[in-house]
C-alpha cells in the first residue's frame, strides 16, 4: 500500500507522494480550508432562510426571541470564546514545544464545550417543557402565541442550534482524539497538522455561534 512513508530529519513521517513535511502540511491545510468552506455554505443555507423569513415576519420573530433567556446565550457565547482561545493556545504551545501546557489547554477547551452543551440541555428542556416546540408541534394552548406562526421561529431555533450542537459534539470528539495523541507525545513543533485542523473546525463552531447569539436571542 502507499503507506511506505519517508522519515524526515526530525523523525516525523510524511506520505510518499509529498516532497517534504512542509509540502504535506500545506496541502493538508488547504484541504481543511476547503472543508470549512462547505461548513460555511451548509450553515449559510440556514442563515439565508432565517434572514428571509425574519424580514417577512419581524414581529413574530421578536415574539419568539422574547421567549429565550438571553443570559444563557450570553453565558454560552463567553464560554465558546474562552474555548476558542484555549484551542488556539493549545496549538501555540505545540508550536513552541510545550506539549504539557498544550494538553492542558485542549482539556480546558473540552470542558468549555461540555459546559456549553449542559447549558444547551437546560435551555432545550425548558423550551420543550413550556411547549415551545418547532413548527406545527408548537403547543398553541399552552403558549398562547400572539402570532399564529410562532412555530416557524422555533423551527429555526431548534434547527440552527441543533445543527450547531451536533457540531459542538463532533468537535469535542475530535479534540479528545488529538488530546490523546498529544499526551502520547505524537505532536511537536515539527508536526501538529491534525491539531491545526481540529482547531480551525472548532473556531468555525465558535464563529457560527457568534452569529446565532444575537440573531436568535436578541434581535429575534
Amino acid at each position: 500500500m502507499s503507506t511506505n512513508n519517508h522519515a524526515s530529519t526530525s523523525g516525523h513521517h510524511f506520505a510518499h507522494h509529498f516532497r517534504d513535511a512542509n509540502h504535506e502540511f500545506e496541502s493538508a491545510k488547504q484541504g481543511i480550508w476547503l472543508f470549512m468552506v462547505t461548513e460555511i455554505l451548509m450553515f449559510g443555507g440556514l442563515f439565508v432562510a432565517y434572514t428571509i423569513f425574519h424580514n417577512i415576519y419581524p414581529e413574530m420573530f421578536a415574539e419568539g426571541a422574547k421567549q429565550l433567556d438571553w443570559r444563557m446565550g450570553f453565558f454560552n457565547t463567553l464560554v465558546l470564546i474562552m474555548s476558542s482561545l484555549t484551542m488556539a493556545l493549545g496549538i501555540y504551545y505545540l508550536q513552541v514545544g510545550q506539549s504539557k501546557k498544550a494538553v492542558r489547554s485542549l482539556a480546558i477547551t473540552l470542558v468549555c464545550g461540555a459546559i456549553f452543551m449542559v447549558v444547551k440541555y437546560f435551555e432545550y428542556t425548558a423550551k420543550i417543557h413550556h411547549g415551545f416546540l418547532p413548527g406545527r408541534f408548537l403547543d398553541v394552548h399552552h403558549v398562547n402565541p400572539e402570532h399564529a406562526n410562532l412555530g416557524l421561529y422555533f423551527g429555526f431555533y431548534f434547527c440552527m442550534t441543533g445543527l450547531h450542537g451536533i457540531h459542538v459534539l463532533l468537535g469535542m470528539g475530535l479534540i479528545t482524539w488529538v488530546m490523546i495523541r498529544a499526551m502520547k507525545g505524537e505532536f511537536g513543533p515539527d508536526y501538529y497538522t491534525p491539531v491545526e485542523g481540529v482547531g480551525i473546525f472548532w473556531h468555525i463552531v465558535d464563529l457560527i455561534w457568534i452569529f446565532l447569539f444575537p440573531l436568535l436571542y436578541l434581535v429575534g
Binding site: M60, P134, G135, R136, G151, L152, G155, F156, F158, C159
Partner: peptide, 23 residues
C-alpha cells in the same frame, strides 16, 4: 446538504420553513 436536512426536519419535526400553513 442543508436543503435535504431541512426536508428531513420538515418531515420529522414539522419546522414549517417549507410549509405555507406556517408562513
Amino acid at each position: 446538504g442543508i436543503t435535504l436536512l431541512l426536508l428531513v426536519a420538515e418531515r420529522t419535526l414539522g419546522v414549517g420553513i417549507f410549509d405555507p400553513a406556517l408562513g
